[in-house]
Every structure is written in structure tokens, then in C-alpha cells.
């Protein structure tokens, strides 16, 4: 089965924030939660580059390793998902994540954290595919509909690629060969450099 990965081509990203908007629109994410963001390097200077970043669905996901209630699970396609019914909002995944992916809606006074929210690679959660409950908690499950993530599909310059890691890497390799520069695959070493942890069934299903 395909191993899903994100890849952002820094040579192509034009900082339009279309991916960010597509994500918000597709999943109706609550105010203050940003599953994806675009970071611009050397903004306004020669050699300006932009990179779109969200959860990279790491092979050995740090969030999964530090979660005190073990609410994360990995699908057969390598997508790292979590069960909001189990999440206690401790924020440890946010400490551990290299990409700043986990988001917490403020739930009460003094910065009390609500249930964590993050990019699902448009693959929903442990609920039944495309059910109302799944949409409410995790947004649309495009993978179950046979579609790829909305952010990458919407990208106007095809800088952001999301899908089968081998296919995505091939596309990128061809680009690098043709243009002869920009070979850095941003974040891949951190996200996919470690041996893959095997897929786990949804945590809730085990109890």
C-alpha cells in the first residue's frame, strides 16, 4: 500500500496561502486553529523562499510516542491520526512535534487546552468514514472518497505535493533534474528519516 507523504517544493511556493485557505474551508476548522501554515524565509530579501508546513505524518511520530493516553494511531497508509475522544489536551504532542502541527483550541480560562486538532492528511478519524461525527471532529475524509488532501490538490503552482511518497519523490526528482537546483526536500529527514513504526488500529477500537 502507498505510504502517504507531504512534500513542499520551496522553489515553487509563491506564498499564496491557498493551501491554508483550502484546509480551513474543507474541514471547517475552528477559529484560532491552523492545521497548515506557510512560512516565508528571507521575506523581502533576495533569495526569498516559502514553505507550506503541516503535520508531516512522521514514520516514527514523536506525538505518538509522548502521548500519555496513547490516543494516536497510524493507518496502513502511514497517516498519523488521533482519537479526540481519548485526548486529554495536555499539550505534550505540541512540545514534541518538530513541525508545530498540533493545535489546541482554548477551552476555558487560563489557557486551558481543549482537544488537540491537527492535519489528518484529509483522512478523518476513528469514526465511521464520512459520518457526521467524523466530520465534526476531524473534518472531511477525502482519502475515503478516493481523493488526495485538499491543500495539495488546490496548490496553484503544484509546489505542495501530497500522496504516495514514491510518486511524489519521483515528480520532485524530475523537477530537480530539469531545473538543476533546489534539491532540498524540506523536512523529509526529520519526518521520514527514522524507521517506520508499524500501523496501529485506532486506539478506541482496542478497548
Amino acid at each position: 500500500m502507498a505510504r502517504m507523504k507531504f512534500l513542499c517544493d520551496a522553489e515553487r511556493c509563491i506564498e499564496c496561502n491557498g493551501c491554508v485557505t483550502a484546509c480551513k474551508q474543507e474541514h471547517e476548522v475552528p477559529w484560532g486553529v491552523n492545521r497548515r501554515r506557510v512560512v516565508t524565509l528571507n521575506d523581502g530579501l533576495p533569495g526569498e523562499k516559502s514553505i507550506s508546513v503541516a503535520c508531516m505524518h512522521c514514520s516514527d511520530a514523536p506525538c505518538m510516542a509522548v502521548c500519555p493516553v496513547d490516543c494516536f494511531y497510524k493507518t496502513a497508509e502511514g497517516v498519523v491520526l488521533h482519537d479526540k475522544d481519548l485526548c486529554i489536551g495536555c499539550g505534550y504532542c505540541f512540545y514534541a512535534c518538530p513541525f508545530g502541527a498540533p493545535q489546541f483550541p482554548q477551552d476555558g480560562a487560563f489557557g486551558l487546552r481543549g482537544k488537540m486538532d491537527k492535519c489528518t492528511f484529509c483522512a478523518g478519524g476513528p469514526e465511521e468514514d464520512n459520518s457526521a461525527a467524523e466530520f465534526k471532529k476531524y473534518g472531511r475524509n477525502r482519502l475515503a472518497e478516493g481523493k488526495l488532501p485538499a491543500c495539495a490538490e488546490m496548490c496553484s503552482t503544484k509546489a505542495l505535493l501530497g500522496g504516495d511518497g514514491d510518486v511524489v519523490a519521483d515528480i520532485y526528482r524530475n523537477r530537480v533534474l530539469k531545473r538543476g537546483k533546489g534539491a532540498e526536500v524540506w523536512g523529509w529527514g526529520t519526518a521520514y528519516g527514522k524507521p517506520e513504526k508499524s500501523a496501529t488500529p485506532p486506539a478506541g477500537a482496542k478497548s
Binding site: 491554508v20 501554515r37 506557510v38 512560512v39 524565509l41 528571507n42 523581502g44
Partner: peptide, 9 residues
């Protein structure tokens, strides 16, 4: 830490 590293988020 780079002041020219920005985001809209």
C-alpha cells in the same frame, strides 16, 4: 530567530 522569517498565521 531570523527576523525575516514570517508567516501569516
Amino acid at each position: 530567530d531570523n527576523p525575516y522569517q514570517t508567516t501569516q498565521v
